[in-house]
């Protein structure tokens, strides 16, 4: 688990950096760990950095969408950040627009918006 992604708490935001070529099980475990930590830490924001991901297929795309929905139920706003251009184009082609998640260019952009909205 620890190798699949690193999770840090900064202010009241959980920062998650996903490693490349994560397996299905690892990302499912991450989803579970995150929901636990949102509650345990009282986090109001989650920032998922996918800059390391060379590929996002429909499975990972779906998990990211589910993560956002789940976090919202637990009163935390999720930002997906750092998506590569080729990944964005491919996801759109696959018909996955992650419409349930917010997006930002980078970690710092997401943090700025979370602060602006009083969540960090």
């Amino acid at each position: 688990m620890a190798e699949a992604a690193s999770v840090y708490l900064v202010e009241r935001v959980l920062l998650v950096a996903i490693r490349d070529n994560i397996t299905d099980t690892e990302i499912m475990n991450l989803q579970e760990e995150l929901s636990d930590r949102i509650v345990a830490e009282g986090a109001r924001g989650v920032v998922i950095d996918i800059a390391a991901l060379e590929i996002v297929d429909t499975f990972v795309g779906r998990v990211l969408a589910q993560l956002s929905s789940m976090a919202r139920l637990l009163a935390a706003e999720t930002y997906v950040v750092g998506m590569r251009p080729a990944v964005a184009m491919t996801l759109v082609e696959l018909g996955m627009d992650l419409s349930g998640s917010k997006t930002a260019l980078s970690l710092s952009h997401a943090l700025r918006r979370l602060r602006r909205d009083g969540l960090a």
């Binding site: 060379e54 590929i55 184009m89 082609e93």
Partner: peptide
């Protein structure tokens, strides 16, 4: 090319 590769690998 990056885009070609990402599309194929996906």
């Amino acid at each position: 090319r990056a885009l070609r590769k990402v599309r194929f690998v996906t």
